[in-house]
């Protein structure tokens, strides 16, 4: 009975439990796909951005939308198990606590990965996006984003009193992420300071990295010049830095606010 098999058991259990909660399952399993579809057929998809077809540009951004849904999956799972005292039971079993966290993260990340692949295939097949020009960077962007939203979900769960609030909180997280990443409207319509704020919101660096990884261009620079393999890592350095800062914030919140018990000791 090694640690990995315990983690896998937790991840499987999370999935079974999720499928039993119809409303929640519908939201986190299908809504990201639906959003991606709507988004790539909306007004933004007309025309082109620096020579990239609008639909392709939008579809690439839509891949990142699965991440705030991971936040919702993890945060509600943490809150429900804490409030219903399932955590207390789990921690009294042979399970190490690290396997509980890891199971949550693995579960949400696999879900997100499957959704991301579906959207990517759709982006390439239907929306006219090219094959990713830098697959390792794309993978890095996804894993960084998954780690970031998992850390934020576990970190903020301590401040969320119950299931209903957990679902409410997930909405502004989703909207802020989409807004910051320019998925609701182009960030360029914002004043200068608004653009700076949008740049450092959690999803923004991930979307920027994904665009660079798939479309092979640096959209942060004037006229979005084409970048080579190594160069695309270089131009993503700032985004990686912002991502790491958010992970740090999530870990700090976890240390400060996480609790296993409904009562504050």
């Amino acid at each position: 009975m090694n640690w990995l098999s315990m983690v896998w058991a937790q991840a499987r259990l999370n999935q079974t439990v999720l499928l039993r909660q119809r409303g929640m399952a519908f939201t986190v399993l299908l809504l990201p796909l639906f959003l991606a579809f709507v988004y790539t057929s909306g007004p933004q998809s007309a025309g082109s951005v620096n020579g990239v077809p609008g639909a392709a540009f939008a579809a690439v951004g839509a891949i990142a939308v699965v991440l705030p849904f991971s936040y919702m999956t993890i945060a509600t799972a943490v809150v429900v198990r804490r409030e219903e005292r399932v955590y207390k039971r789990l921690r009294g079993s042979a399970l190490p606590t690290s396997a509980i966290f890891a199971g949550d993260i693995v579960h949400a990340t696999i879900l997100g990965a499957v959704q991301a692949v579906v959207i990517l295939v759709y982006a390439i097949g239907v929306a006219g996006a090219p094959m990713p020009s830098n697959l390792p960077l794309l993978l890095l962007a996804f894993l960084l984003g998954a780690a970031m939203f998992a850390a934020l979900a576990i970190g903020t769960a301590g401040l969320i009193p119950n299931y209903e609030v957990a679902q409410l909180i997930a909405l502004p997280v989703l909207f802020l992420s989409m807004f910051g990443a320019g998925l609701m409207f182009p960030v360029s319509v914002l004043p200068e300071w608004g653009q700076r704020v949008a740049d450092v919101l959690p999803l923004s660096p991930i979307v920027a990295m994904m665009r660079t990884a798939i479309l092979g261009r640096d959209f942060a620079a004037e006229a979005a010049p084409v970048v080579g393999f190594l160069e695309s890592f270089q131009v993503s350095a700032a985004a990686i830095g912002i991502g790491l800062l958010w992970i740090g914030a999530g870990l700090w919140f976890t240390r400060r606010y996480f609790r296993w018990d409904p009562r504050r000791a």
Partner: peptide, 30 residues
Amino acid sequence: RHRMGIVLQEAGFYKDLTVAETVDAWRRWT
């Protein structure tokens, strides 16, 4: 950890699972 069993005064289950599913899930890490 693996040498003790605990019945808590107050602890929840995954309500939507069946008895068999619950035991099977626990068996996977016990």
